[in-house]
Nucleic acid binder design. Sequence first.
DNA 1: CGGAGTGTTGAAAAATTTCAAGGGTCGTGG
DNA 2: CCACGACCCTTGAAATTTTTCAACACTCCG
Lengths: 232, 232
Amino acid sequence: MRDTDKDIIRGLRLFADVEADKFDSLMMAAYAQRFPAHVDLIREGETADFLYIVLEGSVELFSTSHGRETSMAIVAPVSTFILAATIKDAPYLMAARTLEPSKLLLIPSSNVRTVFGDDPAFARAIVTELASCYRSVVKSMKNLKLRTAIERVGNYIIRLHDKSGKADIVELPFGKRNLASILGMTPENLSRAFGALQSHGIMMDGARIEILDRAALEAISKPNPLIDDPRS
Amino acid sequence: MRDTDKDIIRGLRLFADVEADKFDSLMMAAYAQRFPAHVDLIREGETADFLYIVLEGSVELFSTSHGRETSMAIVAPVSTFILAATIKDAPYLMAARTLEPSKLLLIPSSNVRTVFGDDPAFARAIVTELASCYRSVVKSMKNLKLRTAIERVGNYIIRLHDKSGKADIVELPFGKRNLASILGMTPENLSRAFGALQSHGIMMDGARIEILDRAALEAISKPNPLIDDPRS
DNA sequence: CGGAGTGTTGAAAAATTTCAAGGGTCGTGG
DNA sequence: CCACGACCCTTGAAATTTTTCAACACTCCG
């Protein structure tokens, strides 16, 4: 692995306080690799041989059952995925594929578990990361169960707006088909939701969204920090 | 705390390998308490002062947003709840109330975090428990997003059947109103789903369900181990 | 004996999905 | 370089699912 990669990884909260020799032993076993877009990385049901970290690009986590498919999450840099399966040495509950050309770090699960046992700082970082993942899924589930389709779309736009530093125009970070699946609806329904929201403070133009009236958007979306706030 | 309680707790996987003095320091700070049915234990947004463990009875985790409410999970003995908030010292994302008279163990969050740092065996147990919780929510979410209402109800019955050791008659462990919310539908819709399933291998009688034709029930429910299997 | 809470059923309303068609973009191969 | 096909997004209309509203039976408890 290249030293520049190593520096980036060292900077992650997950590894920040890991002892030097433990970190080196993890990195020795790990390797960074580039993948083209739309490549299958893992399949549901396989056992978790590696912990993955997205360094560049983005990865879709999705699940399938009897002919239906749904996106569970999109992982952007810099984040881990399938940490829980790695910890439990259990089969993946979600499949993963690249959405765009991506650079990933793969660390053998057994090494992760070993260092977890040897290095309390790493253990603490792992458990914090896992707790964050858990809370993130809980928020997704609240989003799905407590909101209508239009509210979900509206709040998604509000979050984009916040992330952009309240820019006048925000851009969808991936295709509407994927977004629809993440938000638990069909692409057609997402299209109509965007249409409906144009009377409530936004103006769509392809993947670009102009925020004209944030207050109106909030009025119909009813944001809730305990669902939307990425901190907490 | 009574010694019999202590023995029960010592038997939990979470505490099985904890060093004796660490365990005692946790138990010294903890207390077991009985609560009547339908008592609010915690509210969303409060900070996580305690880790809870259900010793007897059952607890509903639920969430609210702008006048709507949904059940997120029902916690049966012996399990923890709100572990992630405890670890992160963050606000609860879910509220909790007893469903029936219950006995709970409350351990101050700060003690949990301290022992987590001091005792590698406890750290490992915590992270395993948390990973299980995470995987459990992911499965719930797959259940919601990949299945129709009838399939969710059918698979719920199949799980009950399995848990009972394939008894001819199984009993719903809590009210249909709660079950409907857990399964992401209205009580009316659950009623109709039960009705529809009577042509597919079951016979309802109040809270009792007779399993007449497991194969027919599976045919319409399409079970999937990566959603339904509580192990894995 | 009320009265509250729970579960069921029917009918109407609303939300969502499905099906079908068409416009647009992009990349590849002729 | 252009044409074609593949894919994505949008829109309309119909079908389906789900929710809502209303009424009613039943049980449990005070």
